[in-house]
Nucleic acid binder design. Structure first.
Lengths: 265, 265
DNA sequence: CGCTAGATTGATAACTGTCAAGGGCGGTGG
DNA sequence: CCACCGCCCTTGACAGTTATCAATCTAGCG
């Protein structure tokens, strides 16, 4: 799992990378987690993996694509309450809670690992992995609170700016990216259901972010043209994500990634 | 802790009651929890118990009054992300996370128990208590998601209606109340910071709820005049709170409470 | 090449915020 | 006991933000 220079190999999957970002893992643990990632299955976008009211158990790991948690109103209005990005894991704690209070579904086509409660139990027997999973859960709580601030106390443009900052940081932490850009395989309607607005208003707000030179978004790829200013607009403080230095300093990533590429070429 | 009729005694505190609502407790556990409640201290309203950036540990239990979690924007805008009502407990998980990402403060004057990490560790050694605490944590997660839906996908009046429904249910679960009413010792500005609106607009929306005969609110006491219709307006589904039958059927409460009173008189 | 989901735009209405002024009520000091 | 003060609630007029409705445009795809 480490190359001849002792650098962390970019061949490890997002789940491995995510956990390592929270807690250094032994070789054995890394092997176990990587083995788990191999069990991924594919689902098209718009698939519900688990529905509100279900009584599933174990856990779900996203290894590719964008998924989300969401709730529907009786009116049909949808509110997305969390993004599940590559490397993200979510417990299906229905052993204690009974039934799901929300649905988990894919936004884009996704690669997903489904673990039985036995398998997730086995994972948690490893102290370091268990600690990493606990941290992941606390971070997703903190993220939820941050989202509440986003919806309650920020304007449309600021909400999108904040979301984009968060996504950039989270994706950088698990996938090598080029500069301040990443694939955003979701629709404007999805963004609307995330930020509590209308797709029309999302469209106009995106237009404003474009016009002011903050972002560029086309063909499901988002490029942040002026990250410092976007962070300023969003009032973004990444602390709540508990990212390691590698995610916060993109240079490290890019450099090691390009080094990888040149080594492989 | 049980009277001669085998009914749960109303003399147990809110924390005891809260945990019992999630998990039946042995006498020994009940005694332990009740003993802990005795260690309460008083704080005036508007006191920050723990500030963003602090590195506290252990946990906090609210035994009286209204407290909350909140975050501030640099503009000074405040977003309340959770209410901490009597019986509510919150972990100060900074053992894993480092520092608080939000502040915990009182809204009204409060009675609070502060537990060291050792004390909370000792609590968690009791399997039933540990399970109850886990459930409580999951419920507060679910509540956070519900709040996100509230801010993202409901109109002002609906937001307040939903909040009032939730508060009624939660308070009923830990304190004997008379009919569909309870003390709401907070200001309209607090409601605004909860629901993502302005205090002015909260005021007008409350007016509408009053005019349509749904509620009555004066002198920090809220009376719900037409609960079925309020639930309808809010589209309130109490499932996420995981309340026992005693909370959902107020009759039980009132009857046992009045029985208590007459016995004591 | 036609189809369809998604993106874009305009006109208008609805909702919510902002600013400013008054009113009520409880607490405190004289 | 009363006057005064401060905090909160209430209200009005107006501005700003966001939703709604409807049409058009675009790009990916069979």
């Amino acid at each position: 799992m480490r190359d001849m220079h002792g650098t962390r190999s970019t061949t490890s999957g997002p789940f491995t990378r995510k956990l390592q970002g929270f807690e250094p893992l032994q070789e054995a643990d890394t092997a176990l987690v990587t083995a788990i990632e191999a069990g991924e299955r594919h689902f098209p976008g718009g698939t519900d993996l688990i529905r509100e009211g279900d009584r599933p158990d174990g856990m779900i790991v996203i290894t590719g694509g964008f998924a989300c948690r969401y709730k529907l109103r009786e009116t049909g209005a949808r509110q997305i309450t969390a993004y599940l990005l590559p490397g993200d894991v979510c417990d299906l704690d229905t052993s204690t809670l009974g039934r799901m209070d929300h649905t988990i579904g894919t936004l884009s086509s996704c690669r997903v690992v489904r673990l039985t409660s036995e398998a997730s139990e086995r994972l948690r027997e490893r102290p370091d992995i268990a600690r990493a999973l606990r941290t992941a859960a606390l971070v997703s709580d903190a993220t939820l609170r941050e989202w509440l601030v986003n919806l309650g106390r920020r304007m449309a443009v600021e909400r999108l700016a904040h979301l984009f900052c968060e996504l950039l940081m989270r994706i950088r932490a698990v996938v090598p990216t080029q500069g301040d850009s990443f694939d955003l395989p979701i629709t404007q309607a999805d963004l609307a259901d995330t930020t509590g607005m209308t797709s029309v208003h999302v469209n106009r707000s995106l237009g404003e972010l474009r016009r002011t030179g903050l972002i560029e978004l086309k063909g499901k790829h988002l490029t942040i043209r002026d990250l410092p200013r976007l962070i300023e607009v969003a009032e973004f403080r990444p602390d709540y994500l508990h990212l390691g230095a590698h995610a916060l300093t993109p240079e490290l990533w890019s450099r090691s990634a390009s080094a990888m590429v040149s080594r492989c070429a």
